[in-house]
Structures are given as C-alpha cells and as structure tokens.
Design a binder for these strands. Structure first.
Length: 273
DNA sequence: AGTGCGACCCGAACGC
DNA sequence: TGCGTTCGGGTCGCAC
C-alpha cells in the first residue's frame, strides 16, 4: 500500500527526527524482517552508526550512515514509532533502535512483511534491491523510447507491467489504476501493444498523479489510529481505485473491478476502452 | 527470458 | 452471536 508518495512522506517525517542521531544498538524481535546481513551481524554492525541523510529509492527508505546504508521496505503496513525505553512494547513492533538521545525508533508491521537491510556502502550498487530497480518516475531517462524497449517483450497487461519495479519503480496498485484512468488506457491492454501516445501519457500522468499525491501527504485507504501513521488526503482525489460500483467522475459510468494478475483492478469501461 | 502462481502474514470482511 | 473462510497487498522464488 505505501507507494512512492507514502514512502516519501514517511522519509521526510523521519528526516526531521533522525538527522545527526546516533544508533547505539538494536533489538530484533522477528528475525525474518532482517533481509541482510545475518541478524547477529546486523546488530553488531549498526552500533554507533550516525544517521546523516534520509532519502528514497523506489519504495525503499534509505538512510545514509557512517559505513552503511540502512534500508527499510514498508511493504503493505510497515510503519515507524518514536518511543522511549519506558514505553511498553506493542506486539507489532519488530525492530527497535536505541538512539543517543534516549529515544527509540521502532519499526512495526502487523503483517510482518516489511524488510530491513544494512548494506556496506561499497556494496550498495552490486546487490539487491539496487540492481533490480528501474527508473524513478521523475528520471529524465524515462521516455517513450525507454518504455517501448522495455515493453516490447511484454505480452502481460499494462496494469501488471506498471507494477514491475524493474521498469519504473515506485508505482503500486493504487496509483497504477489512477495512471491508467488518466491515460484512458484499458488495464488489460498488452504492454507491447501500447502506442507512442499511450506511453507518453503514462509518463506524464505518472508524474502528475505522484506529485499531487505527495502534496496531499499520500493516500490513506484504511484508517489507522497511530499518530505516526501516514494520514494523507489523496484518497479524496482517486478517480477509480476502491470506487467499485461508484460513478466515474468524468462520464458517470459505473466503475468496475476486475482481477488482473491477481490484483484488484478498478477502471471505467467507457473512459478506458 | 517471460510468465504464472504459491508463499509469506494476519486483521478485516464476508458467509453461514 | 459466533464460527469458519476468504481476501488483500508487494515481492520473491520456483516451475514451466
């Protein structure tokens, strides 16, 4: 659920609280969450590393430390809490960082799907996820020609291909539906059958919808009580996603929901022929 | 190489 | 009301 706009929103919030803080140590309560290195190396290596910078790459949050990059992937429901040692541990808090100002950064995930990595700086470009990620939506190299080359071998529906992080990175299920609506493209169209205009529309609308969503602080589809959760407002701007049986904001037709590649997919049958 | 699908999780929504 | 079942979401790994 967190896609690029939500990830950026979270990263910006973390930045205001974590820059120049030092990580004194870490506790791990769910080992599978640490993707790299081993849990024991993770705990050992992160000691006394200072946080200098927080950015994003694809849907990853990337923190620059002294000798490593600390990466987080929120998957569907990963979130961060700021607490102190005295605060009781919530059952969904799986990785807890002790900071040098006596606060704690706690990474929580109800579904336990979130991932954490601590990668040596000189290895960052030689291992996943960086080797697998495509262009950022705002990258100048993201052109119709680039997509033409990538899409040429894809007989999959464009909806599925927009979710392929190795082509454009950062788009998830919500914004994929919105981008296709704005581009007036049927989600089942094979990627290789798209026209030059289709590809240009996809690029333009990807940038527009993500920029707008970032302005609104992201999309909140389910409501969470936590004060640190992403509580964006972009859900009020959605044209099709999660609007099954409602009226198209453009033509008044009924929005329908289908499955594409196993994913819930919403579209307007009249606007997206 | 491209494609399809189960696995990973578990709370919420649904069906009876 | 209470129970059991299904669903969803991003990504990986495996089989074809």
């Amino acid at each position: 659920m967190p896609e690029k706009p939500e990830v950026i929103t979270v990263a910006r919030k973390l930045e205001t609280k974590l820059i120049n803080k030092k990580i004194l140590g870490v506790e791990v309560f769910y080992n599978n969450m640490i993707d790299y290195p081993t849990v024991s190396d993770f705990k050992k290596n992160i000691k006394n590393q200072k946080i200098y910078n927080i950015t994003t790459r694809g849907k990853w949050i990337v923190m620059t430390l002294d000798d490593y990059y600390l990466l987080f992937h929120l998957r569907m429901e990963g979130k961060f809490f700021f607490r102190t040692k005295e605060d009781e541990k919530n059952k969904h808090e799986h990785v807890i960082f002790d900071l040098d100002d006596d606060t704690q950064l706690r990474f929580a995930d109800v579904r336990k799907f979130g991932k954490v990595m601590l990668i040596e700086k000189d290895k960052i470009n030689n291992m996943k996820p960086y080797t697998e990620l495509g262009l950022e939506p705002w990258d100048k190299n993201l052109t119709s020609e680039y997509l033409k080359e990538k899409y040429s071998k894809k007989s999959l529906p464009i909806k599925s291909v927009l979710l392929d992080q190795s082509i454009i990175t950062g788009i998830g299920n919500i914004y994929a539906d919105e981008i296709l609506f704005l581009s007036r493209i049927n989600p089942l169209t094979k990627a290789k059958d798209l026209t030059d205009k289709n590809r240009k529309d996809i690029i333009k609308n990807t940038i527009e919808v993500l920029d707008k969503a970032i302005e609104e602080g992201g999309t909140t589809i389910r409501s969470y009580t936590s004060e640190e959760g992403v509580t964006g407002m972009f859900q009020n701007n959605l044209f099709v996603h999660q609007r099954e049986k409602e009226s198209c904001r453009i033509c008044n037709s009924t929005i329908i929901k289908i499955k594409v590649g196993g994913r819930g997919t919403y579209y307007c049958p009249k606007c997206q022929k």
